[in-house]
Each structure stands twice: as structure tokens, then as C-alpha cells.
Amino acid sequence: MESGTEQPGDETEPKKVDIKETIFGHVKDAHDWHLFELGETHVTVPLPVIIYNPVRGTSVFTSSAFHHGHEAHDGYRLVTPHYRAEKGLDAAKYPTDEIIAVDGNDNPTGEKIYDLSITKNITSMIIAAVLLIVLMLNVAKAYKVRGSKKAPKGFQSLMEPVIIFMRDEVVKPNIPGKSAAKFTPFILTIFFFILINNLLGLLPGSANVTGNLAVTAALGIISFVAILLSTNKHFWGHIFNPPVPFGVKIILVPVELIGIFTKPISLIIRLFANILAGHIIILSIICLVFIFGSLNKIAGYSFLPVTVLFNIVMMMLELLVAFIQAFIFANLTAVFIGQAMEGAHDEAHH
């Protein structure tokens, strides 16, 4: 952990709160873990930076070497709004917190580099994965010691109803036959991994993991692969040769093919949009204090109780959303897997 202060002379005017930068700075990924600020002092946890350059090779160092974006290190620099404005760079081409290659004069070289760093979101996912493994191993150990016939105790009594509910109300009704038992660990892993990340994201100073499109896309791709591996000849026969007149097939086959890809895309967008929107709303309500305070100090302090009240309500709502979105992702994954397995029975169901 390190503390850093803004260098003098960086700004000629008094520092103003950039609402847009404040909100998106909290919800996007970063190369260090920013905890809080005390005046001009930034308290952060440096994270490993791993850069592969086809010309220079691999560079490994910690993000503290960038000194909060004020200095370059080993021919690389962390883009900040100040650096971008100083060099007159395009914001679309050089987004904030992106690492770029620079020359001896601190100017971008345009070299192609591959950022393999352990970022804030990756670190949070590792923490969530460790928590998931530890929690599940403790539950498994309790079953091994006490047996399945005895009433659960402690943490086991908290987890057992959730596990049984997911197995009996989500997996078994949607995935037929013996395949239900095979896919139960997969569905439970998805549910608890998303839930833990959703809950960690509500803590102050935490990472917005499930509100990151790359993370939800990875989860969606995993579900997509599981769905494809569950398909059979009846499923593909229904896609490419649906039981409709030939003229309708010309229209229906492309629609069915598109539907294969829209299912995981709906999982990706739904989780990403709901979690990100909740975080942005909470941060926007907090920023209203600074907006009113910039107009009038009394107005800022007067609006503070309203902000606290609204945020308590929003945090309670986000706590509910954390459970709902984890359940919806796991439930729809089970539904899509079951649909892929029961292609032969579609007509009977209709």
C-alpha cells in the first residue's frame, strides 16, 4: 500500500471536481487499487504491471512506478487526463488508465503492446474465486464430518437451503434426466461466483467486476460453450430443418441461427447493464453533494442528509439486485442448456 500526493504545479487553477471522471473512474478497471483520498493524498494498493512488446520483450513492474501517472517507467506511461491534455492527444484513441509506449521525450510512439497486467478487476475476481473455494470447501467438510443425515450447523445451515433451492428449483426442472446432476456444480459455480462479485462490488473502494463488459462477456462465452456442448442432432435438425413449409424455412432458419447467439448476448448485456447502472446511480447521487456545494456551501451541506437517505435506499435495492442478477444468469443458463438437450421434444411441447 502506498500514499501519493499530487505534484505541485500540475494545475494553475484550483482543483474542481470532474463529475464525469469521478463516476467513470470508480466503475472502470484500473492498474492500481485506489482506496480513498485524504486531501491531496491518494491511498492506493499497487498492482503488478505486465507489458509484452514484440520489439522490446516483456516488462514487469508495479503500478507504483508510474507515480499515479506523473512519470513514465521503462518506456511506458499510464495515460491520465492531464497527460492527454498536455500532449493534445485524442481521448478516443488514448483513454484514461491505458498504458502506452513512449519515447525519451515522453511522447507516444504508437508501438503495439499487449497489456497482461493484473488489474483491479482481475485482483477482485481472484479474491472472489478464493472466497468461493474456501466457502464451498468448508461446506463440503461439514458434510464429510457430520454426514448428510444430520441437521446442518453454522455456515452449513446458511448455504444448504440456497444449494438445495438452486438444485431442485433451477437445475432439475430445466435440465432433463441424469444431466441435471452433471450440470448442477456448473450452475452453482456460476451463481455463487457472480453473487460474490456482486456483493464485493457494493463495498466502499471495491472493484466493479460484474459491471465490466469484458467480465460478463467471458461468463457469457462460458455459458455459450456449455450450451453448444449440450446440443444434439434433434436441436440442430430443428434449427436447419424446422417443421414448417419451405417458404417459411427461408425466413425461419436465419432467425433460429441468430437466436443461438442472442441467448448468451442477452446474459452478457443484462448482467453488465444492471450492475453498472446501479453503481452509476449511487455515485451520481453522491456527486450531487459536490454539485450543490460548488454552487453554495450551505446548499451542499443541506443536501447531504438527502444524499445519505437516497443512498441507503439504493444500497438496499442493489443488495437485492445482486441476488436477483446472479439467479437470473444461472437460471437462464440452465434453461438454455435444457432447451439444447430437448430439441426432439419441441413439437410435443407446442
Rank of each mutant, 00 (worst) to 15 (best):
S3N: 13
S3L: 11
G4F: 14
G9I: 15
K15N: 02
D18Q: 01
W33E: 07
L35W: 09
F36S: 07
E37R: 05
H42F: 09
V45N: 13
Y52G: 07
R56D: 15
R56L: 14
T58V: 08
S59W: 00
S64N: 01
F66Y: 00
F66P: 01
H68C: 09
A72F: 01
Y76L: 01
A85C: 01
A92K: 07
A92Y: 03
K93F: 08
K93D: 02
T96W: 04
E98Q: 15
A101I: 00
D103Q: 03
G110P: 06
I118Q: 03
T119Q: 08
N121T: 02
I127T: 02
L135R: 08
K141M: 06
A142G: 05
K144A: 15
K144V: 03
K144L: 04
V145D: 10
V145C: 00
A151E: 15
K153D: 12
S157Y: 04
S157R: 13
L158Y: 15
L158N: 14
E160M: 09
E160T: 11
M166Q: 13
K172L: 01
P173N: 11
A180T: 03
F186W: 02
I187P: 03
I190R: 01
F192R: 04
N198L: 02
P204V: 12
S206Y: 02
S206N: 13
V209C: 00
A217Y: 10
A218F: 02
L229D: 12
H234M: 07
N241F: 05
P245F: 08
V248I: 15
K249H: 11
I250S: 07
I250F: 03
G259R: 03
I260T: 02
I260N: 03
I265W: 14
I265V: 15
I268T: 09
L271T: 03
A273C: 08
I280V: 10
I282A: 14
F290R: 08
G293L: 00
L295G: 04
I298P: 00
L304W: 15
L319S: 12
L320D: 11
F323N: 02
Q325N: 09
I328V: 15
I328G: 06
V335R: 04
G338V: 03
G338K: 04
M341W: 00
H345S: 09
E347T: 15
E347P: 11
A348V: 12
